[in-house]
Amino acid sequence: MSEDPINLSVFADLQAATGPEFAVELANTFLEEAPGMIAELHNARAVGDNERFQRAAHSLKSNANTFGAVALAAHARELEVKGLDDDRLRNDDALSQLETLLAEAAAALKALTNV
C-alpha cells in the first residue's frame, strides 16, 4: 500500500510556521504553478534539453517537499538526478507517472485546504 500523497505532519508544520491562511495561499500558488512545471518537463524532453529538464524536475521536487508530497518529491528527484533517458518510452512513462503523483498530491492538498 502506498503512503499518503501528503505527509500530514509536514503540512501541519508548514501551517504552524507560516499561519494557516498563508499555507492555503501557498498551496494555491503551487497548484497554479505545477502544470507549468510539467509542461516545461515535456518541452525540455521534446527538444532534448537535459539542463532544462533537470531544472524543472528540481523545482517540482523542491515544492513537493515543502508540502510533504513525499512520493511526488521522490519521483521528481529521480528525474532530476538521472536526467533525460536515451529511451523515449522510458521518459514518457516517467512523466506519466509524475503526472499521476502530482494529481494525487493536488487532490489531497485541495482536500486539506478546502480549495
Partner: peptide, 9 residues
Amino acid sequence: DDNKVNRLL
C-alpha cells in the same frame, strides 16, 4: 529564487 512558491515562502 526562480520558483514562485519558494520565493513566497
